[in-house]
């Protein structure tokens, strides 16, 4: 199914049966079966078949099944797309997207595969991972390239290398890229997903980074280990106070609509539409965190 939240997108190495059999138990918002970096060139065929067979026969529940295919300039992309669309992938995540043309070309492949296997055209969504300086500069054109595109993601490892720097604790080297990506995503009305945090032993560092990107406006983060999921999801979990306020805002908006009143007011103050939208998102996040956002309390 298509995710409405993507706080965490969990990578699962595509050629590892132990790691792709049940990643959904860790509760990510999306699973990304990886056919790209975690798979050596000699094993591309085997990984593609393994993910295909797994998706065909295992029940991943109500969690978005994404696949990171190989790049547009590789000999594997056509087979990857055909196999994954047939296998039932909800989303294709394209690595090393450089410009809108890449996404348009990918969309054509996806559409051909949808038609060939009888899936409704347009069902498979796309996400682009931006990994180089040019990609970041093209963030907005990529974000608006096709109607299937639901988000753009930062992939920092290649990016910092291209930028002749390396990753640091405070992430200053990514500041511009993150800023542009989140700005482009918001302008285009798609999601912004942050890069992975690779030091598995540094939970404090992950927590700091997750707080930073949430504050910057990102929707979520790609993660490489299931143990990172509760930490990142925790950052996106609204506080009880936020939930209480949001619930009152949403209730006031519903009441105004029911009475056919254009102006929403709460405690004698007028409430703007953006505040209502933000409140609705807070309740979405709260529900995803397992909180009861009871109708009964309205």
């Amino acid at each position: 199914m298509i995710a409405t939240l993507r706080r965490t997108m969990l990578f699962a190495p595509g050629n590892n049966p132990a790691l792709i059999k049940d990643p959904q138990i860790y509760g990510p918002d999306s699973i990304i079966f990886d056919l790209e970096d975690s798979v050596s060139p000699a094993e591309k065929d085997a990984a593609r078949l393994l993910v295909f067979c797994a998706m065909k026969s295992l029940d991943y529940g109500r969690i978005e099944k994404a696949v990171r295919v190989n790049g547009m300039d590789t000999p594997w992309i056509r087979d990857d797309v055909e196999a994954m669309v047939r296998a039932g992938a909800d989303l294709i995540r394209l690595p090393k997207a450089e410009c809108a043309r890449d996404l348009v070309a990918l969309e054509a492949m996806v559409e051909a595969a949808e038609v060939a296997c009888g899936r409704p055209v347009g069902e498979v969504r796309l996400m682009a991972a931006l990994e180089g300086p040019l990609a970041v500069l093209n963030a907005y054109e990529i974000a608006t390239s096709t109607r299937r595109l639901v988000g753009i993601a930062l992939s920092a490892e290649d990016f910092v290398t291209s930028m002749k720097t390396s990753r640091s604790a405070d992430g200053v080297e990514l500041f511009e890229a993150r800023g542009r990506i989140v700005l482009a995503a918001r302008a285009a009305g798609v999601m912004a997903i942050d890069t992975v945090f690779t030091d598995l032993s540094d939970e404090e560092g992950l927590l700091r980074e997750a707080r930073l990107i949430k504050q910057m406006g990102f929707d979520g983060k790609s993660v490489i280990n299931p143990a990172q999921i509760p930490i990142v999801n925790g950052v996106f979990e609204p506080t009880a106070d936020e939930v209480r306020k949001a619930r009152r805002v949403v209730a006031a908006a519903a009441e105004a609509e029911a009475r056919g009143v254009g102006v929403i007011s709460l405690d004698g103050k007028m409430i703007d539409k953006p505040i209502v939208e933000r409140a609705a998102r807070v309740l979405d996040l709260a529900r995803a965190s397992g909180a009861k956002v009871g109708e009964e309390e309205r």
């Binding site: 138990i25 860790y26 598995l200 280990n225 299931p226 143990a227 509760p230």
Partner: peptide, 11 residues
């Protein structure tokens, strides 16, 4: 343990 499955079960 660092095994995410064991940590999940523990939680």
């Amino acid at each position: 343990s660092r095994d995410p499955r064991e940590l999940l079960i523990a939680r």
